[in-house]
């Protein structure tokens, strides 16, 4: 299954990815305050289709990694 990984301490919690995700499978992690002082984005764990929209809408270089295919590494 495709998936995304949010690198927690790279996220500024702007919410752009949450808003843009067509599958609505990203949410704000209100339980976590990261090193930058934001509630980072969090993958809900399912629903990702690997479209990459969150990656391109994210202003930080390395906050989101999108794995389009199964279990790539």
């Amino acid at each position: 299954m495709p998936k995304i990984v949010v690198q927690i301490d790279h996220c500024k919690g702007c919410g752009m990815c949450i808003d843009a995700c067509p599958q609505k499978c990203i949410e704000e992690d209100s339980d976590v305050l990261n090193k930058l002082g934001y509630h980072p984005a969090k993958y809900k764990g399912e629903g990702c289709i690997g479209c990459g929209i969150c990656f391109y809408t994210c202003p930080e270089p390395d906050a989101i990694i999108v794995y389009k295919k199964d279990e790539v590494a």
């Binding site: 301490d9 790279h10 500024k12 919690g13 702007c14 919410g15 752009m16 090193k35 930058l36 934001y38 391109y56 809408t57 994210c58 202003p59 930080e60 270089p61 390395d62 906050a63």
Partner: peptide, 22 residues
Amino acid sequence: HDKKNTHYCPGCGHGILHKLIA
């Protein structure tokens, strides 16, 4: 200390364009 993130505000358009150029 933060050598991994940009200096831009959350949601800044510069960050998006930077990524596209890079």
